[in-house]
Design a protein around this nucleic acid. Structure first.
Lengths: 211, 211
DNA sequence: GTCTATATCGGGATAGAC
DNA sequence: GTCTATCCCGATATAGAC
């Protein structure tokens, strides 16, 4: 018995993930998913009633993966700047390898906001812990009373935006694929340095730090 | 003669912009565009051969608007930090009012990279000037030899990402619409300060500034 | 569980009258 | 230029045999 052979359901699931990630709900074709899974369309509907339910499954899984990746490093026990370094490194690698994931989530949230909103709330994410942890570390390690949400969003923006907007940046600045690889490698050190500099700036100018 | 009444072509054009921006190419329906323009589908095809050509028109216009907004402030004659302040202020307002525009462009570039790539190159954007200008100002006003592309991308990421990812952030952190408005108002001052701090950090640590 | 065949419908595009 | 009617394909979904 060959355990490397996945069950049909798993193959469908994997194929659906790939196609939905790349094409989005509207762009995805059930035929393409079936082909990729090595089955026919009828069998898709045998396992999943319809396209919607298959999509929801993929969205749920992907969303929780994203959130988990975005939060778990910051919930660990390390110095804040170490967390930032690790996060930036990890995330640039992760999104480079799965460049479709974040646009997929963002796009999905624009395509069907109301349906997905409730799906998300059902996932009981607990971001309060995360923000509280960051607030505590900003205070204790750097003496800063800054809104942790802004700092966290800054970290995300500096890390995620360039990867997501890669096609846009590449088009505007006419950058080759090879130079883009170098560019993202550089960012693994540039971004943490940039953030570190910014936070140190607040330290010696604490009258402005209170936001 | 009422000059406030647009020509049919203009009404189609405006309707197409709205629908494509919100739904993307695959999500958009010719019927919806026709309804919004107050005409029927046949007339759409009379003015524009097919969906593709109508989309291209919208994409072209939107893309050049985005690029123009992204670059013109930095090509003017002001201190770099003033430019950054103005840019962040302007862009947070602009994207908040047109929240679909950036996702539209990014999504479009993922949906049909090869077709759009050539359309973009035809627009002869000149980003070299922009980067050269930023490099010059970093050097002359702050004594920094930093890659201007990274700094520029940082500015974009800090400004644009939170607006684009607004639905995501709002879902994860369970933030009300009202608090989001406040959040973006705060960012108009927080982001320039953050950037200013970061750049000042390079100044007094120039051994690390060379990237 | 898996297949082939088919129903059904939505949506882009065209024909042709006015 | 603008309309109604219609074509036609592609895509989701289902029926039913094996």
């Amino acid at each position: 018995m060959d355990t490397t052979v996945q069950s049909t359901e798993d193959r469908i699931h994997e194929a659906a993930r790939k196609v939905f990630h790349q094409k989005g709900f509207n762009g995805a074709r059930m035929q393409e998913i079936a082909d990729l899974a090595g089955i026919n369309k009828a069998l898709l509907h045998y396992y999943f009633r319809n396209k919607e339910s298959l999509f929801e499954k993929v969205f749920n899984e992907t969303f929780s993966q994203i959130v988990s990746n975005m939060t778990k490093i910051f919930l660990s026990e390390m110095a804040l700047m170490s967390k930032i370094e690790i996060f930036v490194n990890f995330y640039i690698n992760f999104i480079s390898q799965h460049s479709y994931v974040v646009p997929f989530i963002i796009n999905a949230l624009y395509e069907k906001p109301e349906q997905l909103r409730e799906i998300i709330t059902r996932q009981n994410v607990s971001p309060e812990l995360l923000l509280e942890q960051i607030r505590k570390q900003l205070k204790e390690e750097m003496g800063l009373d800054i809104d942790p949400l802004h700092i966290y969003v800054n970290i995300l923006g500096l890390t995620i935006f360039p990867v997501v907007a890669k096609p846009l940046i590449q088009s505007i600045f006419a950058i080759s694929d090879e130079r883009m690889v170098v560019f993202f490698e550089q960012r693994k050190t540039i971004v943490p340095t940039f953030i570190s500099n910014a936070l140190k700036g607040y330290e010696k100018n604490k009258s402005l730090a209170k936001i």
